[in-house]
């Protein structure tokens, strides 16, 4: 940032040291409000929650808060419900992330060049995100309802089937459909992040490539994708984290049915229905750990890019 100190001699080094001190003060001053808020409202509760996962806090059987070591963790890990919930969650994450990234990239690319009415299209595509989850949940349950559902009615009226389908009876179909509903709400964020990334790519490099005779596919592969990497990283991370924590959509569409239960549903049932805050915290921590393992690749890449 500052010129080569060797060139400036002793005076330059003093100036440099003073500027470094100034940067240290300013750096902490600029970042301290965020650090304070995150420290008090995220990191501190994180540690408190970790302590709770080692305590006996089962309200239904008189948990007294005493230290029980890893007993909550071993109880949760032995529970076959945990394994099922973990497999379902991986299914949700796989379906949701793949669809989000592919569809989000396609939509962002389509929106990247100006056309008439782009602002309107953009605003329309953002809508699902703004729709409160309960409302979208109720709407989709109206669509998938086995008796008076719109999807069944449409298929029968188009003579594609003759009988009503109970869409959520097949667990694979149920997980796929719930993932689709999840994607419906998350896709706007993915598209927005990727679009902002695309707009940050200077237009003149494409003009240069055009002069060199590079086709659209080659331009995309050799220029757009590499330059879009940071935005793809952000979109992938936020998408993965949101899918790992999937809860609302399942709750509205399938309740706490065993065959579609996610880890988050299991945390909710353990903590708020079962009243076991110790085991609930332990399970929530295992989920956090699993999310972090997937998120860490991006954070590490970030760390390498950081100064």
């Amino acid at each position: 940032m500052v010129g080569d100190p060797g060139k400036n001699g002793g005076g330059g080094r003093r100036v440099r040291r003073r500027r470094l001190r100034e940067q240290t003060t300013l750096g902490w001053a600029f970042s301290s409000p965020v650090l304070l808020i995150i420290g008090v409202l995220v990191l501190y509760p994180l540690i408190r929650g970790l302590l709770m996962s080692f305590q006996s806090l089962d309200l239904s059987s008189g948990g007294d808060g005493s230290f029980v070591g890893l007993r909550n963790y071993s109880a949760v890990l032995r529970d076959p419900q945990t394994e099922a919930a973990a497999l379902h969650t991986l299914g949700y994450v796989g379906c949701a992330v793949v669809i989000e990234i592919v569809a989000g990239l396609m939509v962002a690319l389509a929106l990247n060049r100006p056309f008439r009415g782009r602002g309107l299209v953009f605003a329309a595509l953002i809508l699902p995100w703004a729709l409160p989850r309960v409302v979208s949940g109720v709407l989709w349950s109206r669509i998938f309802n086995p008796d008076s559902g719109l999807l069944n009615s449409a298929l029968i009226q188009l003579h594609l089937t003759h009988t009503n389908h109970a869409w959520f009876d097949n667990p694979y179909a149920a997980i796929f459909l719930i993932s689709l509903v999840h994607v419906w709400g998350v896709l706007p964020l993915t598209t927005l992040i990727l679009l902002a990334g695309l707009q940050g790519i200077p237009a003149n490099i494409y003009a240069a490539a055009e002069l060199d005779g590079a086709g659209a596919v080659r331009q995309f592969r050799t220029m757009t994708l590499p330059l879009l990497r940071p935005a793809l990283g952000i979109a992938l991370t936020t998408g993965t984290i949101a899918a790992f924590a999937i809860f609302d959509e399942i709750y509205v569409l399938a309740g706490s049915a065993y065959s579609t239960r996610s880890v988050m549903t299991q945390v909710y049932l353990t903590t708020f229905s079962g009243g076991d805050f110790g085991q609930g915290s332990a399970l929530a921590y295992l989920l956090t750990l699993a999310t972090a393992v997937f998120g860490i690749a991006y954070v590490r890449r970030l760390g390498r890019a950081a100064p």
Partner: peptide, 20 residues
């Protein structure tokens, strides 16, 4: 500090709600 701040993105709300 930067990596610590950004890393909190991976924390699901449920892990924090009760102590919070």
């Amino acid at each position: 500090v930067f990596v610590a701040v950004v890393s909190t993105l991976v924390l699901p709300v449920f892990a924090l709600v009760v102590p919070l």
